[in-house]
Amino acid sequence: MTLEIVSSVLVIAGAIFAVIGGIGIVRLPDFFCRIHGAGITDTLGAGLILTGLMFLSPHWIVAVKLLAILVLLWTTSPTATHALANAALEAGLKPNVDETEEAPSSL
């Protein structure tokens, strides 16, 4: 019973984050900002829903498979996102910002 409550809280929170990310991708003003909206659904939306499902697993192998999907999503999504952002940059799409600045070299 407790597990079901924990699971419900997690999947509902994940669903809320997923929908917010969806709102973000529609609402944010330019392409580079929209990437952040997609980032929300890919990280916390997917993470919370899959973690929530883990608590409902009838067998430990099911939980491990959910973990495998989660690890796969969390490793491939930033790579795909970066490839996309970099391709857009190289195609001449300029981020709509005030200024580009050099960082004081850290470390």
Partner: peptide, 30 residues
Amino acid sequence: IIVTMGLALVRAGKGPTVFDRILALNMFGT
């Protein structure tokens, strides 16, 4: 999740650049 997929489709339809559409496609896939 289906609502989110619908929102991604809205962006895929609107564009305006091809990269917006691919971003929406990626989100639809996850």
